[in-house]
């Protein structure tokens, strides 16, 4: 860890000066977004300070119950966020599918990643469990959000085509195949794009963080590769489960389209 520059308080304060300069520029250009910039900066600061203290506490008092509690909070927040931020009103059935696919998809990825790939000990070690779970859950949340939007939007805008397919004897699966495929593509695309640009266009956040804190770049890269594959797997798995179960909520038992006129 030698040679690591621990940021002093005045150094951290200097980074806020940067934002103050930005505010002047924004104001001068007549872009009325000062409030959002200030609020989001303050919010981010408070959230991170709290998280920092919380993590210090959790790391010093590692306890399986605490780790599980944190994961549960992350999952609940992620599911709530997906449902709340959707621009469509989701049906009860679809909300349930969001929860099921998030829980099943992310938890199985987290377990595989922690116990097979990294092989942590003790099993609840918060130093590994919490950040890795956070990355998998966060990315899967973004993936499902995109999947939800594309699925619901597709079902409504292409409703006529879906129904015409049913009239010809298509199964609900066959009738919604194109919409489901499109939704999968758009949900998985951001992850694929970030993998393609990785190391060339940008250095990923986790790796940057590890390097700055003194870890050897080789170790950081090994972790980064593993976590990227974990993220891809987790996003794909959650989205596949979501879409596989989700399209069915638009049909009833008689294979009739179940959405309002």
């Amino acid at each position: 860890m030698e040679g690591v520059i621990d940021l002093q308080l005045w150094q951290l304060a200097a980074s806020y000066v940067f934002i103050v300069i930005l505010l002047f520029i924004v104001k001068a250009r007549g872009i009325s977004r000062e409030k959002e910039i200030i609020v989001s900066s303050i919010r981010m600061t408070l959230q991170l300070i709290l998280t920092g203290y919380l993590l210090v506490y959790l790391f010093n008092n590692s306890n399986p119950l605490y780790t599980l509690l944190v994961i549960a909070i992350m999952e609940v927040f992620a599911i709530y966020n997906i449902i709340k931020r959707s621009k469509f009103k989701l049906s009860k059935g679809l909300k349930r599918i969001v929860a099921i696919s998030m829980l099943f998809g992310t938890l199985s990825s987290i377990l595989y990643f922690l116990f097979v790939v990294v092989n942590i000990s003790p099993w609840y070690n918060p130093r590994y469990f919490i950040p890795i779970a956070g990355m998998l859950i966060g990315n899967s949340m973004t993936g499902i959000s995109l999947g939800v939007t594309r699925l619901v939007d597709g079902m409504y805008t292409k409703r006529y085509l879906v129904e015409s397919a049913l009239m010809l004897g298509a199964t609900p699966k066959g009738a919604s195949k194109e919409i489901v495929d499109n939704a999968f593509d758009s949900a998985i695309l951001p992850t694929i794009n970030s993998m393609v640009g990785m190391g060339i266009v940008f250095l990923p956040g986790m790796m940057t963080g590890q390097i700055l804190s003194g870890t050897s770049p080789v170790t950081s890269i090994k972790y980064q590769i593993a976590i990227m594959l974990g993220i891809l797997g987790s996003v794909a798995l959650t989205v596949i489960i979501f879409l596989h179960l989700g399209y069915k909520t638009f049909f009833n038992d008689e294979s009739q389209l179940n959405i309002g006129e």
């Binding site: 006529y160 085509l161 129904e163 015409s164 397919a165 049913l166 009239m167 010809l168 004897g169 298509a170 199964t171 008689e254 294979s255 009739q256």
Partner: peptide, 18 residues
């Protein structure tokens, strides 16, 4: 329903083009 529709096919008024 699906079996029925494969025997009793319907054509809607506005044609669906895929």
């Amino acid at each position: 329903s699906v079996d029925l529709r494969r025997e009793v096919v319907m054509l809607p008024q506005a044609p669906a083009i895929y």
